[in-house]
Protein backbone atom coordinates (compact mmCIF):
# COMPACT_ATOMS: atom_id res chain seq x y z
CA UNK A 1 0.00 0.00 0.00
CA UNK A 2 2.98 2.25 0.45
CA UNK A 3 4.86 3.59 -2.46
CA UNK A 4 8.15 1.97 -1.61
CA UNK A 5 8.41 0.56 -5.13
CA UNK A 6 7.83 3.86 -6.84
CA UNK A 7 11.07 4.47 -8.59
CA UNK A 8 12.20 8.03 -8.66
CA UNK A 9 15.27 9.41 -10.21
CA UNK A 10 16.61 12.88 -9.87
CA UNK A 11 15.43 14.96 -12.80
CA UNK A 12 17.73 16.73 -15.16
CA UNK A 13 19.76 19.32 -13.28
CA UNK A 14 18.84 17.57 -10.00
CA UNK A 15 15.40 19.28 -10.03
CA UNK A 16 12.01 17.63 -9.42
CA UNK A 17 12.53 13.84 -9.64
CA UNK A 18 11.13 12.13 -12.72
CA UNK A 19 8.67 9.36 -11.77
CA UNK A 20 8.79 5.96 -13.39
CA UNK A 21 6.00 3.38 -12.95
CA UNK A 22 2.55 4.04 -11.43
CA UNK A 23 1.76 7.32 -9.72
CA UNK A 24 1.12 7.16 -5.93
CA UNK A 25 -2.50 8.14 -6.59
CA UNK A 26 -3.05 5.22 -9.00
CA UNK A 27 -1.47 2.82 -6.51
CA UNK A 28 -3.75 4.01 -3.76
CA UNK A 29 -6.80 3.48 -5.97
CA UNK A 30 -5.77 -0.07 -6.76
CA UNK A 31 -5.08 -0.86 -3.10
CA UNK A 32 -8.50 0.41 -2.07
CA UNK A 33 -10.23 -1.65 -4.78
CA UNK A 34 -8.47 -4.78 -3.51
CA UNK A 35 -9.65 -4.11 0.04
CA UNK A 36 -13.27 -3.80 -1.11
CA UNK A 37 -13.09 -7.03 -3.06
CA UNK A 38 -11.79 -8.91 0.00
CA UNK A 39 -14.57 -7.48 2.16
CA UNK A 40 -17.35 -8.40 -0.28
CA UNK A 41 -15.98 -11.92 -0.69
CA UNK A 42 -15.90 -12.43 3.08
CA UNK A 43 -19.47 -11.17 3.51
CA UNK A 44 -20.79 -13.38 0.69
CA UNK A 45 -19.01 -16.40 2.15
CA UNK A 46 -20.55 -15.82 5.60
CA UNK A 47 -24.01 -15.22 4.16
CA UNK A 48 -23.88 -18.56 2.35
CA UNK A 49 -22.35 -20.58 5.20
CA UNK A 50 -24.47 -19.40 8.12
CA UNK A 51 -27.79 -21.07 8.73
CA UNK A 52 -29.75 -17.98 9.54
CA UNK A 53 -32.84 -19.73 10.77
CA UNK A 54 -30.91 -21.74 13.31
CA UNK A 55 -28.91 -18.75 14.41
CA UNK A 56 -32.01 -16.67 15.05
CA UNK A 57 -33.64 -19.60 16.81
CA UNK A 58 -30.70 -19.83 19.20
CA UNK A 59 -29.61 -16.26 19.74
CA UNK A 60 -32.60 -14.06 19.10
CA UNK A 61 -35.71 -15.96 19.98
CA UNK A 62 -38.39 -13.36 20.86
CA UNK A 63 -40.32 -15.66 23.21
CA UNK A 64 -37.20 -16.35 25.25
CA UNK A 65 -36.21 -12.69 25.23
CA UNK A 66 -39.67 -11.83 26.54
CA UNK A 67 -39.18 -14.29 29.40
CA UNK A 68 -36.23 -12.27 30.69
CA UNK A 69 -38.52 -9.35 31.43
CA UNK A 70 -39.04 -7.67 33.81
CA UNK A 71 -36.39 -9.36 35.97
CA UNK A 72 -33.68 -8.36 33.51
CA UNK A 73 -34.04 -4.77 34.68
CA UNK A 74 -35.71 -4.98 38.09
CA UNK A 75 -33.34 -7.61 39.48
CA UNK A 76 -30.29 -8.25 37.28
CA UNK A 77 -29.44 -4.75 36.07
CA UNK A 78 -30.35 -3.31 39.45
CA UNK A 79 -27.93 -5.69 41.16
CA UNK A 80 -25.19 -5.08 38.63
CA UNK A 81 -25.52 -1.39 39.42
CA UNK A 82 -25.59 -1.99 43.19
CA UNK A 83 -22.42 -4.10 43.02
CA UNK A 84 -20.55 -1.74 40.74
CA UNK A 85 -21.63 1.56 42.31
CA UNK A 86 -20.92 0.16 45.79
CA UNK A 87 -17.57 -1.21 44.64
CA UNK A 88 -16.71 2.07 42.94
CA UNK A 89 -17.63 4.13 46.00
CA UNK A 90 -15.46 2.14 48.40
CA UNK A 91 -12.69 1.70 45.83
CA UNK A 92 -12.60 5.47 45.53
CA UNK A 93 -12.33 6.01 49.29
CA UNK A 94 -9.78 3.24 49.74
CA UNK A 95 -7.89 4.43 46.66
CA UNK A 96 -7.76 7.96 48.06
CA UNK A 97 -6.49 6.62 51.37
CA UNK A 98 -3.72 4.63 49.67
CA UNK A 99 -2.86 7.51 47.34
CA UNK A 100 -2.39 9.78 50.36
CA UNK A 101 -0.42 7.09 52.20
CA UNK A 102 1.72 6.59 49.09
CA UNK A 103 2.62 10.31 49.26
CA UNK A 104 2.95 10.44 53.05
CA UNK A 105 6.10 11.65 54.74
CA UNK A 106 5.89 8.66 57.08
CA UNK A 107 7.94 6.00 55.36
CA UNK A 108 6.12 2.86 56.60
CA UNK A 109 2.86 4.31 55.24
CA UNK A 110 4.49 4.59 51.83
CA UNK A 111 5.68 1.00 52.06
CA UNK A 112 2.25 -0.31 53.00
CA UNK A 113 0.62 1.63 50.17
CA UNK A 114 3.18 0.46 47.61
CA UNK A 115 2.78 -3.16 48.71
CA UNK A 116 -1.02 -2.99 48.54
CA UNK A 117 -1.04 -1.31 45.14
CA UNK A 118 1.52 -3.64 43.60
CA UNK A 119 -0.16 -6.78 44.93
CA UNK A 120 -3.72 -6.00 43.97
CA UNK A 121 -2.88 -4.45 40.61
CA UNK A 122 -1.03 -7.62 39.72
CA UNK A 123 -3.70 -10.16 40.61
CA UNK A 124 -6.48 -11.28 38.27
CA UNK A 125 -9.89 -10.03 39.38
CA UNK A 126 -11.28 -13.56 39.39
CA UNK A 127 -8.61 -14.68 41.85
CA UNK A 128 -9.67 -11.92 44.24
CA UNK A 129 -13.27 -13.10 44.10
CA UNK A 130 -12.20 -16.68 44.76
CA UNK A 131 -10.15 -15.39 47.68
CA UNK A 132 -13.25 -13.77 49.15
CA UNK A 133 -15.17 -16.99 48.60
CA UNK A 134 -12.60 -18.91 50.64
CA UNK A 135 -12.09 -16.20 53.23
CA UNK A 136 -14.33 -17.90 55.85
CA UNK A 137 -12.08 -20.97 55.64
CA UNK A 138 -9.00 -18.91 56.41
CA UNK A 139 -10.64 -16.82 59.09
CA UNK A 140 -13.20 -18.98 60.87
CA UNK A 141 -16.08 -16.95 62.21
CA UNK A 142 -15.31 -14.02 59.94
CA UNK A 143 -18.18 -12.81 57.84
CA UNK A 144 -18.17 -10.01 55.30
CA UNK A 145 -20.74 -7.46 56.47
CA UNK A 146 -23.67 -6.97 54.12
CA UNK A 147 -23.96 -10.64 53.11
CA UNK A 148 -23.90 -11.35 49.39
CA UNK A 149 -23.96 -7.68 48.43
CA UNK A 150 -21.13 -7.08 50.88
CA UNK A 151 -19.03 -9.85 49.35
CA UNK A 152 -19.54 -8.64 45.80
CA UNK A 153 -18.86 -5.05 46.75
CA UNK A 154 -15.77 -6.05 48.73
CA UNK A 155 -14.41 -7.91 45.72
CA UNK A 156 -14.93 -4.98 43.41
CA UNK A 157 -13.54 -2.59 46.01
CA UNK A 158 -10.30 -4.53 46.16
CA UNK A 159 -10.15 -4.89 42.38
CA UNK A 160 -10.75 -1.18 41.84
CA UNK A 161 -8.89 0.41 44.73
CA UNK A 162 -5.34 -0.31 43.59
CA UNK A 163 -5.96 1.29 40.20
CA UNK A 164 -7.89 4.10 41.81
CA UNK A 165 -4.98 4.80 44.15
CA UNK A 166 -2.60 5.24 41.23
CA UNK A 167 -5.06 7.39 39.28
CA UNK A 168 -5.72 9.61 42.28
CA UNK A 169 -2.03 9.93 43.05
CA UNK A 170 -1.44 11.13 39.49
CA UNK A 171 -4.32 13.57 39.96
CA UNK A 172 -2.99 14.86 43.28
CA UNK A 173 0.46 15.33 41.79
CA UNK A 174 -1.01 17.18 38.82
CA UNK A 175 -2.26 19.95 41.12
CA UNK A 176 0.43 22.65 41.00
CA UNK A 177 2.55 23.02 44.14
CA UNK A 178 1.60 26.69 44.31
CA UNK A 179 -1.93 25.70 45.30
CA UNK A 180 -0.76 24.06 48.51
CA UNK A 181 1.60 26.97 49.20
CA UNK A 182 -1.14 29.56 48.67
CA UNK A 183 -3.42 27.62 51.01
CA UNK A 184 -0.72 27.25 53.67
CA UNK A 185 0.20 30.94 53.39
CA UNK A 186 -3.42 31.73 54.28
CA UNK A 187 -2.98 29.83 57.52
CA UNK A 188 -4.63 26.56 56.50
CA UNK A 189 -3.22 23.41 58.06
CA UNK A 190 -1.85 20.73 55.74
CA UNK A 191 -4.97 18.60 56.20
CA UNK A 192 -7.30 21.55 55.64
CA UNK A 193 -5.42 22.60 52.50
CA UNK A 194 -5.61 19.02 51.21
CA UNK A 195 -9.34 18.68 51.75
CA UNK A 196 -10.53 22.10 50.56
CA UNK A 197 -7.96 22.99 47.91
CA UNK A 198 -5.93 20.08 46.58
CA UNK A 199 -8.28 17.07 46.64
CA UNK A 200 -11.23 18.85 44.94
CA UNK A 201 -8.93 19.85 42.08
CA UNK A 202 -7.41 16.38 41.86
CA UNK A 203 -10.86 14.79 41.71
CA UNK A 204 -11.80 17.06 38.81
CA UNK A 205 -8.64 16.04 37.01
CA UNK A 206 -9.34 12.33 37.43
CA UNK A 207 -13.03 12.32 36.49
CA UNK A 208 -12.43 11.06 32.92
CA UNK A 209 -10.11 8.17 33.87
CA UNK A 210 -12.29 7.18 36.81
CA UNK A 211 -15.34 7.09 34.55
CA UNK A 212 -13.47 4.52 32.51
CA UNK A 213 -12.59 2.67 35.69
CA UNK A 214 -16.26 2.57 36.60
CA UNK A 215 -17.05 0.97 33.24
CA UNK A 216 -14.34 -1.56 33.91
CA UNK A 217 -15.75 -2.32 37.40
CA UNK A 218 -19.21 -2.68 35.90
CA UNK A 219 -17.87 -5.39 33.62
CA UNK A 220 -15.92 -7.01 36.45
CA UNK A 221 -19.13 -7.19 38.48
CA UNK A 222 -19.93 -10.22 36.30
CA UNK A 223 -17.40 -12.09 38.48
CA UNK A 224 -19.96 -12.05 41.29
CA UNK A 225 -21.13 -15.15 39.43
CA UNK A 226 -18.32 -17.05 41.10
CA UNK A 227 -19.50 -16.16 44.58
CA UNK A 228 -22.37 -18.56 43.99
CA UNK A 229 -25.10 -15.95 44.29
CA UNK A 230 -28.67 -16.80 43.53
CA UNK A 231 -32.21 -15.53 43.66
CA UNK A 232 -32.60 -11.88 44.37
CA UNK A 233 -28.82 -11.27 44.30
CA UNK A 234 -28.05 -12.27 40.71
CA UNK A 235 -26.50 -9.69 38.47
CA UNK A 236 -26.66 -9.53 34.69
CA UNK A 237 -24.16 -12.22 33.73
CA UNK A 238 -25.35 -14.78 36.26
CA UNK A 239 -28.93 -13.97 35.29
CA UNK A 240 -28.19 -14.50 31.59
CA UNK A 241 -26.35 -17.71 32.33
CA UNK A 242 -29.23 -19.12 34.42
CA UNK A 243 -31.87 -18.16 31.90
CA UNK A 244 -29.85 -19.62 29.05
CA UNK A 245 -29.61 -22.93 30.92
CA UNK A 246 -33.29 -22.95 31.76
CA UNK A 247 -34.37 -22.45 28.17
CA UNK A 248 -31.41 -24.25 26.60
CA UNK A 249 -31.14 -21.22 24.41
CA UNK A 250 -28.50 -18.47 24.05
CA UNK A 251 -30.90 -15.57 23.61
CA UNK A 252 -30.62 -14.38 27.25
CA UNK A 253 -26.86 -14.03 26.82
CA UNK A 254 -27.42 -11.74 23.86
CA UNK A 255 -30.08 -9.77 25.74
CA UNK A 256 -27.77 -9.34 28.72
CA UNK A 257 -24.94 -8.28 26.42
CA UNK A 258 -27.10 -5.56 24.92
CA UNK A 259 -28.09 -4.43 28.44
CA UNK A 260 -24.42 -4.01 29.40
CA UNK A 261 -23.80 -1.99 26.27
CA UNK A 262 -26.79 0.21 27.07
CA UNK A 263 -24.83 1.38 30.11
CA UNK A 264 -21.20 1.08 29.06
CA UNK A 265 -21.35 2.80 25.66
CA UNK A 266 -22.95 6.04 26.95
CA UNK A 267 -20.50 6.08 29.88
CA UNK A 268 -17.53 5.57 27.59
CA UNK A 269 -18.85 8.37 25.39
CA UNK A 270 -19.28 10.60 28.45
CA UNK A 271 -15.71 9.89 29.57
CA UNK A 272 -14.25 10.89 26.22
CA UNK A 273 -16.42 14.03 26.17
CA UNK A 274 -15.14 15.00 29.64
CA UNK A 275 -11.61 14.27 28.55
CA UNK A 276 -11.91 16.54 25.52
CA UNK A 277 -13.46 19.28 27.59
CA UNK A 278 -10.58 19.05 30.05
CA UNK A 279 -8.02 19.10 27.25
CA UNK A 280 -9.53 22.41 26.16
CA UNK A 281 -8.83 23.75 29.65
CA UNK A 282 -11.55 23.66 32.35
Amino acid sequence: MTDQSTKTEPGPDGGVPVRTGLSPRKKQQISRAVQYVVLVAAVVFLLMRIEWGKLAENFAKPEVAAETLPDLFTVALKNTIIYSVGGFFFAFLLGLLFALMRMSSVRPYRWIAIAYIEIFRGLPALLIFLLILFLPLALPGFEVPGGTYGQGILGLTIVGSAYMAETLRAGLQAVPKGQMEAARSLGMSHARAMTTIVIPQAVRIVIPPTTNQFVSLLKDSSLVLFLGVSGEYVELTKFGNDMASTFANATPILVVGVTYLLVTIPLGYLASRLEKRQARGR
Binding site: Q179, A182, Q201
Partner: peptide
Protein backbone atom coordinates in the same frame (compact mmCIF):
# COMPACT_ATOMS: atom_id res chain seq x y z
CA UNK B 1 -0.63 27.96 61.04
CA UNK B 2 -1.60 30.62 63.55
CA UNK B 3 1.53 32.64 62.76
CA UNK B 4 0.95 32.46 59.01
CA UNK B 5 -2.47 34.03 59.44
CA UNK B 6 -0.67 37.25 60.31
CA UNK B 7 1.36 37.22 57.09
CA UNK B 8 -0.23 37.59 53.66
CA UNK B 9 1.65 36.34 50.62
CA UNK B 10 1.24 37.29 46.97
CA UNK B 11 2.93 35.02 44.43
CA UNK B 12 4.37 35.68 41.01
CA UNK B 13 2.01 33.10 39.50
CA UNK B 14 -1.05 34.36 41.45
CA UNK B 15 -1.94 30.83 42.66
CA UNK B 16 -5.66 31.53 42.85
CA UNK B 17 -7.79 28.47 43.50
CA UNK B 18 -9.11 27.68 40.02
CA UNK B 19 -12.15 25.73 41.20
CA UNK B 20 -13.56 28.72 43.09
CA UNK B 21 -14.93 32.07 41.98
CA UNK B 22 -13.09 35.27 42.87
CA UNK B 23 -15.45 35.79 45.79
CA UNK B 24 -15.00 32.22 47.05
CA UNK B 25 -11.24 32.60 46.75
CA UNK B 26 -11.38 35.55 49.10
CA UNK B 27 -13.86 33.85 51.44
CA UNK B 28 -12.50 30.35 51.85
CA UNK B 29 -9.70 31.01 54.32
Amino acid sequence: DAARRRVGMVFQQFNLFPHMTALQNVMVA
